[in-house]
């Protein structure tokens, strides 16, 4: 007999959360919960393993295959672990005209990883993504669930350095209609614990 590696179910000790998520949808629409459940797992484990797909399928009444079909349709769920800080650089036209290609190249050089890779420590991973809705404030790096916009070279350096120390800077509210002050690296170095405040 094959020894099956068993992983404790993710939601086993999260009944309240599960109830809350399932409660958002009518009973006949239980399947709707598949996306929020995938997000919970993705957020906590940085990827969605096959065991989790099956577990979620059990919860919402889908085959694991169907859950995989859904999961793989979206670009925010990952089948392989991403880094603690998943850096998503928008590369679509407006951002590209604001320098996102160069920003991306800069990150590649700085971190030594390319699109789709995770660094050796598992700290950073890099993904080129499509339009993030920051067209007026590009270039933008989405770190996990948080946007850092109008990323200048100095801001980029400061951000990466902070993250390297596991300090997550408060994003600068850089929505200025012009680029004044863009390179001041003027965001508060107000750090919060990694990942805090970015559930669901």
């Amino acid at each position: 007999m094959v020894e099956l590696e068993t992983v404790p179910p993710f939601f086993a000790d999260k009944q309240e959360l599960l109830d809350e998520i399932l409660g958002r949808y009518p009973e006949y629409g239980r399947r709707s919960a598949v996306m929020p459940l995938l997000r919970e797992v993705q957020h906590a484990e940085r990827y969605v393993s096959e065991a989790r797909l099956a577990e979620i399928g059990e919860i919402v009444g889908m085959h694991a295959t169907e859950v995989k079909g859904v999961m793989s349709f979206y670009s925010e769920y990952h089948g392989e672990p991403v880094g603690t800080y998943h850096l998503q650089v928008c590369s679509t036209l407006s951002c590209s005209l604001a320098g996102s290609d160069e920003l991306y190249d800069y990150l590649v050089e700085k971190l030594g990883i390319v699109n789709g890779e995770v660094d050796a420590e598992g700290r950073f991973s890099l993904q080129k993504v499509e339009c993030l809705g920051s067209c007026g404030s590009g270039p933008v790096i989405q770190v996990n669930d948080t946007y850092y916009e109008r990323v200048s070279r100095s801001r980029c350096d400061a951000l990466i350095e902070a993250l390297s120390r596991d300090e997550v800077p408060e994003p600068w509210r850089a929505r200025g209609g012009d680029n004044e002050g863009a390179d001041k690296a003027d965001f508060l170095m107000h750090t919060v614990a990694a990942g805090e405040g970015e559930t669901r």
Partner: peptide, 20 residues
């Protein structure tokens, strides 16, 4: 009524597969 086969990925990368 058994969803044991599905499309995986999307766009030009779409393929059929099963996890079962």
């Amino acid at each position: 009524g058994d969803g044991v086969l599905d499309f995986i990925e999307r766009g030009g990368h779409t393929y059929i597969g099963t996890l079962e």
